[in-house]
């Protein structure tokens, strides 16, 4: 059972390192990991060092799924596949924006790979620019709050739904704030033959602007407010949902983070908060969270 070796350059309290550790613990040593360009790649592999103790490869930003598919095909052709699992560990930009083409192709073709999106909701490696994973109202360096702006104008792309539409055997959401949930789902995914997708919510203290010690707490608030629902989908059907008891208002989640601070200090912010509450309410209804 391995984890990332210490000495990597992740920020204190790094969500990527936590996600990688949970994946490594759950999946065991008989794996090959692919990471696209991003924080996880940069912080773990500054030449000539590596934090990885399993075989690991980085090629480009937008091709992790295609590289994983190639590895899987090679192992099959060479008769080395056995129980070896190929796992992609990618950020939200690499998954939901620039790498969607290759990811969709790999899932359509049905390669035996597990793809984990570590979603910290912006391009953190390049300085917190908005991505397709950035939620409504979040201030980033390319969706800043301003005289005429309340931050990001679009809601997160529903990537799990897109992946589920491929008819994949297993698509699930999880959060690094629920390590046991995440590890159970990773284990389940790698034990399934075929393409599996895990979308892990990952609070980033640097990009979201909160104290590094509160990483886990912030992720729990996302789940407890229904802004990040936890569910499992098998062959396009929802088969499991984490129910919420005593749901919290979205303010509890938003006010804990600097990226939403303007919603509480700017005139008209309450209307924006109400829109975000509507998103949470929609999630409750759609995924039957209560």
């Amino acid at each position: 059972m391995s984890r990332l070796a210490p000495g990597h350059r992740g920020c204190p309290g790094c969500c990527d390192a936590m996600a990688a550790n949970f994946v490594l613990e759950a999946a065991g040593d008989d794996i090959i990991v692919v990471s696209p360009t991003g924080c996880l790649e940069v912080m773990t592999t500054p030449y000539p060092e590596s934090a990885w103790e399993v075989p690991w490869i980085h090629s480009l930003f937008e091709n992790a799924a295609s590289v994983a598919a190639g590895i899987e095909s090679a192992l099959k052709a060479l008769g080395r596949k056995g129980n070896t699992k190929i796992i992609a560990l990618a950020g939200d930009g690499a998954t939901m924006d620039i790498g969607t083409l290759g990811l969709s192709g790999a899932f359509e073709r049905g390669h035996d790979i597990t793809y984990v999106c570590i979603d910290n909701e912006a391009y953190m490696n390049t300085g917190v620019q908005r991505s397709g994973g950035t939620p409504y109202g979040a201030s980033t360096t390319t969706s800043p709050t301003g005289k005429e702006s309340f931050g990001n104008r679009t809601q997160k792309k529903n990537m799990p739904a897109i992946m589920a539409a491929h008819g994949a055997p297993y698509v699930t959401t999880t959060s690094i704030s629920y390590p046991k949930d995440m590890m159970r789902k990773v284990k389940k995914a790698v034990d399934i033959e075929g393409p599996c997708y895990i979308h892990a919510h990952a609070p980033c203290s640097t990009g979201w602007r909160f104290e590094s010690s509160r990483t886990v707490e912030i992720g729990k608030l996302a789940v407890e407010t229904a802004l990040w629902p936890l569910y499992e989908i098998e062959y396009s059907e929802i088969t499991g949902v984490k129910k919420i008891k005593n749901r919290k208002p979205v303010e509890d989640y938003l006010k804990a983070q600097g990226r939403f601070k303007h919603l509480f200090t700017k005139e008209g912010g309450e209307k924006e908060i109400a829109k975000i509450q509507d998103i949470a309410d929609w999630n409750v209804k759609h995924y039957e969270l209560e």
Partner: peptide, 10 residues
């Protein structure tokens, strides 16, 4: 891209 993975896998 797939050949990057395949070739690296031997």
């Amino acid at each position: 891209s797939a050949l990057v993975g395949a070739s690296a896998a031997g």
